[in-house]
Write a protein that binds this DNA or RNA. Structure first.
Lengths: 226, 226
DNA sequence: ACACGATAACTTGCATACTAGTCAACATAT
DNA sequence: ATATGTTGACTAGTATGCAAGTTATCGTGT
């Protein structure tokens, strides 16, 4: 699960972007942390210009907040922005699964099934990080199945906003089981060409984050804007 | 219908962005047109840096294509990119209208009705540009009705890609009538809290562009990449 | 006349320097 | 001691110059 795009040609700006993107989404850089173009440029050994461009891109993803003549900070969580990101992510992925249910690329079926089996193993082994990896791939495979691979870029962009928040939540085995079962039901609906059912299952699946987010809002209120 | 965002604080970069965005989407700059940072900087009287930033933002919207060490061109149309943009736009707006059908902000009802009435007048008067304005506002009001104003930003981003292409198509009175009737049906579904019907009407509505786009692909093939 | 090679004129990416604006600390006055 | 004004250390936005690479033009040789 590497940064968005994983560009082929690597400019200085790309290097800075990838590094910071990772640090922010993995929460190694906490929300509210001040971060200056000059400092980052020094640590990378680049000039300010490529760093600036990377900042600009990260700001577009709502991961940085550039305040002219003041400072740039790792963007604090915002319930509003999180809601927006979840809305878009859900909208796109719902259309993906509906589309896949109606006309999917069957050559992806095997990969989906294999992924699901591995999920079961990860759940048994209580291997949370492996489960997260598989979850990431699973949703990516859904896009492939719908023949809309590009859609995962949109999903990933919006996931990033939520993922870094969920780094603060522990994933219990029970939670993993629930998510796994959702995935299972989703595949059943997909393979059964049942768009309505796939829609409903995915809605429930994506809504499961709500209580987690609410909980983090109270336990880590200092990281929030609103 | 001003450029995306209509930022409050106007930097040099913003000025360049807004200007170029308008020229590209209005097709005053044709797909494939070469455009260099230096030239643009000269005409605006700015340095290359703010222009460069504007280019970067336009490239993110797939309106420019920056080819390092070669040149930057107004991005040619691409059926693939157009399909992607339409997919995302449809996904988001479908979720918007479903959401509005289930729980809308009734204080927007009046504006929607008023807009629809004005559309009828524009159709009668065969005032195409006025109709396009109203159409833009109508879809924006839909987002407001769903209490998801932000969603229109996503829609507008993806519309831009398609809109500039549709500048090449004439809108006949008959076509306007059809679009108007779609809008009418959509509002009926919305006010009747009929999400399924709203979904279906919007799907048909957004699909009406397909033959237009196909036609332009043949008549203006030189502007296309693929 | 035509093919081919060198060169000059472009392009964007990066580095450095300067400007305008904000904020915090400190000194001064009450 | 507290309030206030000034100064200095920061910030991002902008300007300019250089480096690396591509393209097109022009000249040369056949």
């Amino acid at each position: 699960m590497v940064a968005l795009g994983s560009l082929e040609r690597s400019t200085s700006s790309d290097i800075v972007f990838d590094k910071l993107f990772g640090q922010i989404t993995r929460l190694e850089l906490l929300p509210g942390t001040k971060i200056s173009e000059t400092d980052v440029a020094k640590t990378f050994g680049f000039s300010r210009q490529p760093v600036r461009e990377a900042f600009s891109r990260l700001a577009n993803l709502n991961l940085l907040l550039v305040r002219p003549q003041r400072a740039t900070v790792v963007r604090p969580f915002s319930r509003k922005l999180i809601a927006h990101a979840r809305f878009v992510r859900a909208a796109v992925e719902l259309e993906v699964v509906r589309s896949a249910a109606l006309d999917r690329d069957r050559s992806v079926d095997a990969a989906l099934k294999a992924n699901l089996r591995e999920q079961a193993q990860a759940v048994s082994a209580e291997d949370v990080s492996r489960f997260h990896e598989l979850d990431y791939d699973f949703h990516k495979l859904l896009c492939a199945s719908a023949k809309q691979e590009f859609a995962f870029e949109i999903i990933a962009e919006n996931k990033a906003q939520v993922d870094r928040l969920c780094m603060l939540a522990l994933t219990s085995k029970e939670a993993m089981v629930v998510l796994y079962e959702d995935h299972q039901k989703l595949l059943e609906a997909l393979f059964g060409s049942d768009a309505a059912s796939a829609d409903e299952v995915l809605r429930v699946h994506l809504d499961r984050l709500t209580p987690t987010i609410d909980a983090i809002y109270t336990t880590h209120n200092a990281y929030f804007d609103d």
